[in-house]
Write a protein that binds this DNA or RNA. Sequence first.
DNA 1: CGCCAATAGCTATGTACATAGTTATATGTG
DNA 2: CACATATAACTATGTACATAGCTATTGGCG
Lengths: 202, 202
Amino acid sequence: MSLRYAILAILTAAPLTGYETAKRFEGSVGHVWHAPDSQIYPELRRMEAEALVEGREERWGPKGTKTRYYITAAGEAAFRDWMATPLKYAPWRDVAHMQAAYFEWTDPESVRMHLEQHAAHYTEQIAQWSSQVQAIESHEHPMIAARLERYPAEQHERIVAFKAFAYEGLIRLAQAEVDWAHSGLELLERLDADVPAADAGD
Amino acid sequence: MSLRYAILAILTAAPLTGYETAKRFEGSVGHVWHAPDSQIYPELRRMEAEALVEGREERWGPKGTKTRYYITAAGEAAFRDWMATPLKYAPWRDVAHMQAAYFEWTDPESVRMHLEQHAAHYTEQIAQWSSQVQAIESHEHPMIAARLERYPAEQHERIVAFKAFAYEGLIRLAQAEVDWAHSGLELLERLDADVPAADAGD
DNA sequence: CGCCAATAGCTATGTACATAGTTATATGTG
DNA sequence: CACATATAACTATGTACATAGCTATTGGCG
């Protein structure tokens, strides 16, 4: 159900086609939410059925059409309601930490590979999210530009500040993951100095 | 598929019944993985069908029975294979950070409520995970005790160190979330000092 | 002895997500 | 003009997870 509010949220910036919405939720460019097409198109239709969005058909070239979705007053109200509703926190679940708990079941080279991969992954995330923050703060991010055009100037500071704040939180998490992986490499060195590779269970 | 390896992992400490396994994966007491019963029992059966575990029936009182699952040699091999396999990182997805990006759509009291709830949630997680670390390092954690009884002394340091390491990573993440929420409360104060509660879109 | 909670073993149902693929049209470039 | 990529709109299928509930037996406590 979070996808619904993520869609409503981006429609408060500007109306979008299904394809543009899917582009915003593509998992590879550092956005704050993700979803596959197979969730997005049906959800847009359900929201349209509930009058949270209104789809207006536009011409696209001489023979094509596209549907652009506008958030409705009911959609804004639903979004505001959700924005005032306490969140339900799911239990934490993370494969990398779970696997790390059992590193004694593999050789130090594999442990090193996992930790280096983990650091590399989150270093890349930091780069992606940092570039989002830069685009937000410079107002060059297209959704920011759209919002600043649409809403009165006295709201601009909050609009920009909260998006930067959200990404800064993600960057903090990613930095904690990088630091944790590095501390794991140090732990590995300490453990290797103690006992050479004697695997558990052998 | 991660559940399978989480189950194999805990069976390397000691054989468990389905119910005991489900207890280890209960979402409310700070473990490193979680799963509902509806996943655990079918997965145990699939793993038994694939000879990764062996279920042995035991008597339970005069009329009851229980099945205790033992990891097999094939199960250990599959677990080692997974422990040496690079992980696939899913795109990050987190409702609290997504919602924070749009805090301008609600009033400062709701923003404060969200941030305080976020800090409280992760403060509680830190307490739970810290108590896991204490139990691990004091060797009073039942799974640790089982492992130290089962495996040779030269492996004990690694067994303990890697589990503590995994939880320390989770604690770092939780601390980053608490710090982020606190920095959000500070941001909120700065924004409130600038402009009183003018909501976007009104 | 009765009652309640724990132990034990599940299933049904629905939602969220991953992956892969499809057809049609438009646009830009060489 | 031809070709490749982007835009546009999806669906099919399978896995992961959430929630709620079920029956049976044992054990502890008042």
